[in-house]
Design a binder for these strands. Sequence first.
DNA 1: CACACAACCTGTCAGC
DNA 2: TGCTGACAGGTTGTGT
Length: 283
Amino acid sequence: MPELPEVETVRRGLEMTLAGRKIIRSEVFRTGLRIPFPPNLEEVLSGYEISSISRRGKYLVFDSSNKTERLVIHLGMSGRILLVRADSWEQPGKHDHFVMESDHGWLMILNDPRRFGALFLAEDPDGHPSLAALGPEPLGDSFDGKELARRLKRTRRPLKNALLDQSIVAGMGNIYACEALFDASLSPFMEASKITEKESERLVNAIRKVLLRAIDAGGSTLRDYAQPNGESGYFQHSFSVYGKEGERCPGCTCDPARTGGIHRTSQSGRSTFFCPVKQCGKK
DNA sequence: CACACAACCTGTCAGC
DNA sequence: TGCTGACAGGTTGTGT
């Protein structure tokens, strides 16, 4: 599920229900996910007043008005957060690993079949090694063509691999990297450091456009739901290339019968979807 | 030092 | 109907 738009969708749902509320109780159902749960988690969360929920890259941060430690959650590959009424829930489901209850009768359930997610406490989340290493927020003011180009100059990896590097830009994942490169008509295979200022500007605009449209659609739902209320996102219906091998690419002049339409290949073990005509200058 | 790759897990789907 | 293998939205440690 979760790249930046999905995490942002989750953040908004949590903000709506939990901001300004107090946690009265929490419980873990296993020892941890990718990293062990903090031993003092239940103690810290007892009486934890949530002032707001913020997002840094793909990390959710629960800001508190009365505790020094902050709850931080990463959803990994298959993580989901559900909000349900406390009286409608009895037992943890198969992959429910953590639950906390608010003072107005809501439960927040963390469910993660593959357990690649993470949950930890940090007094200064921005200073935590994982968050401190993140690049700029793609939807923030400090992200522009110049800034992205400056960061891409440092690596000779293929452009698409560089976009997946969270220290270059925070929050991009495999879907939106493919979609943004298609929108910007840039080759996923070009050496990142070779990007021109003009191309970088185009890429920034494409990244912003794709992410904003996806957030508007409530994120993308592939096999599971993205939103805390259990509803699906619907941006998956707007994909141009992701998962569309062999199909005609939208708005492109290529002839699928001759050029094969959208191609799929693998870069560093991850699928890349692209149009060789629009993005790689193939005739 | 920059990069590729395996490992971490479970679920699903295609092919036999 | 099973069984097997490939693949899936991410991050991190290891090895070249």
